Amino acid sequence: MAKGKYKNWLTEEGLTLLNGWARDGLTDEQIAHNIGISRSTLSEWKKKYKDISDALKKGKEVVDLEVENALLQRALGYEYEEVTREQQWNEKDKKYELVITKKVKKKQAPDTTAQIFWLKNRRPDRWRDKQNVEHSGTVTNQNMDMSALSVEELKKLAKLDE
């Protein structure tokens, strides 16, 4: 495919390649490099040619959804089967072959880091680090009479006599 010629990238083959690069996680800059153009030229192509823009968007959406699903699975925990294979001699075929020797069901515990990340991004109103709390009302006077305390007792309270 001739590099840098937008018409080549509007073909079925070209759009499939663009979609695949986006799905593989390449940035627009990397895709532009693969095409043989600058990132700004790719941006112009995306504005002018809906097919190019759609191919890149569709490819990126698939990866984003896969990552989102993996993050959710990690946050909730999941079960999986671990399969162990070992080489064994097959007398009949006179060769070694991989044979399943053990299957074990395992559980991956929920990941609190993934849970925190998910909640902070999906529910920032309830899960952000900084909460805005409004106080309505008054604070009563909290003055204490310490006139009866000795100097040593006052120093101890002030933690000066340690």
Score class of each variant (00 low, 15 high):
Q108C: 12
E86S: 07
S147Y: 05
K159G: 06
P124S: 12
V104H: 09
A75N: 05
T113D: 10
K103D: 02
Q73C: 12
Q73N: 13
K57N: 06
W127C: 11
V104F: 06
I116V: 15
K159H: 07
K103T: 07
E134G: 06
Q108T: 07
D54M: 13
M146T: 02
E82A: 09
L119I: 07
I100Y: 01
K159S: 09
D64S: 04
L157S: 04
P110T: 01
H135M: 10
D51V: 02
E97R: 13
Q108L: 13
D125T: 08
Q108A: 14
A70N: 01
D54Y: 10
V67Y: 04
L98K: 07
K103F: 01
Q73H: 08
Y96C: 00
R128L: 15
K95Y: 03
K58M: 08
D54F: 11
V151L: 05
E153G: 02
L157M: 06
V133H: 14
L76W: 03
L98Y: 05
K57H: 10
Q87E: 13
G77C: 15
V99Q: 11
K95W: 03
T113I: 06
K105P: 07
W127F: 14
L149D: 03
I116Y: 00
K106H: 03
Q88E: 15
K102S: 13
A109H: 13
Q87H: 01
A109P: 03
L72H: 02
